[in-house]
Simulated assay, not measured.
Amino acid sequence: MENKHLHFNTAIGVKKPENYRNKQQACPFCAREELTDLIEVDGPIILLKNKYPVLENAYQTVLIETDDCHAELSTYSKEHLHRLIQFGMRHWLEMEDSGNYKSVIFFKNHGPLSGGTLSHPHMQIVGLYDIDYRDQVNHDMFEGIVLAEEDGVRFSLSTKPRVGFYELNMEMDDTCYKERFSEYMQIAAHYILHHFPFKATSYNIFFYHYHSKIYAKVVPRFITTPLYIGYGLPQVPNNLHWMAGEIQRLYF
């Protein structure tokens, strides 16, 4: 029978450091000289094996985005932003092309409601040996109101969100990297943290390689609606066109 569930090792999970609530916890990513199992270092950017591989039947890596513990993606210089995303995408696609995994997921947690445990900016690239995440992906989840489109990159607000409410999408061909892809992603993160109609402290970024396209989905995180948890029913808010207009007014 095909496996559709990730298995979480709780014995490892309880050992993971956490500093969103536990402010006394030292940040392990700041102690750069103590990091082990490094895969590649590019100045302040580091890719290394995850010291706490809580997912079974998976190869887990962590991408430390910067040496500034208090930085955040929406504040990065354009130079660092492009350097980081190209670095991450290269390793993600190389792991995918290796043939060692059924699929490879690439994602980012930011903030106390994002599902992450450490506030230091980082992403994760995880090779899954027996699960293909693309089985849960469809084109509908990337459809939306177009906010901007330039140089072959589309930026949209989902009209058929995957989980519900507000999801911001970026889309480009997988043939070459386009700077607008990351710049739209940065705008999405900045809007969520600084201009969202409800106070927002957290978001996720999910990357997808699907049908010769690279997609990213930036999702503000709040307490998840029970209708989705209990029944898998995404909700679509009635103010999407207002929000689309606000984003265009603020950034374009």
Rank of each mutant, 00 (worst) to 15 (best):
N138K: 05
T75Y: 14
N57M: 12
R90S: 13
Q235N: 04
L48M: 15
V218A: 00
F8A: 01
R21M: 11
D174C: 13
E79K: 14
R162Q: 02
F155M: 01
V163D: 05
R162L: 05
E56M: 05
Q248G: 09
A71S: 15
E179R: 09
Y166P: 13
D42A: 11
K213P: 14
G43M: 08
L84N: 06
M123A: 06
Q248N: 05
V41N: 09
L73W: 08
L233A: 04
G88W: 07
P220I: 15
I39T: 13
I229V: 15
E18L: 08
N169P: 14
Y129Q: 09
I214S: 01
H80W: 06
L168N: 08
E149I: 07
S77A: 13
S158M: 07
I192M: 10
A189L: 02
L157S: 10
K23N: 06
E167P: 03
K213G: 12
P17S: 07
S98R: 01
C30R: 08
V218G: 02
P28M: 07
H195W: 03
K199I: 12
L157K: 11
P53G: 05
Q136G: 09
I85C: 03
T224A: 12
I192W: 00
K4V: 12
I39A: 08
S202G: 02
H241V: 03
E183P: 11
L193N: 05
Q136Y: 03
Y215A: 02
H80Y: 03
E33I: 01
D67G: 14
N57C: 04
R21C: 05
D130T: 04
E149G: 07
Y59R: 04
T10V: 12
Y210P: 14
Y191R: 05
L250W: 06
H122R: 10
R21W: 05
M123G: 02
M172A: 09
L157V: 05
K108P: 00
N204A: 03
Q136E: 10
G111R: 07
R154L: 13
Q186F: 11
E179K: 13
L6E: 00
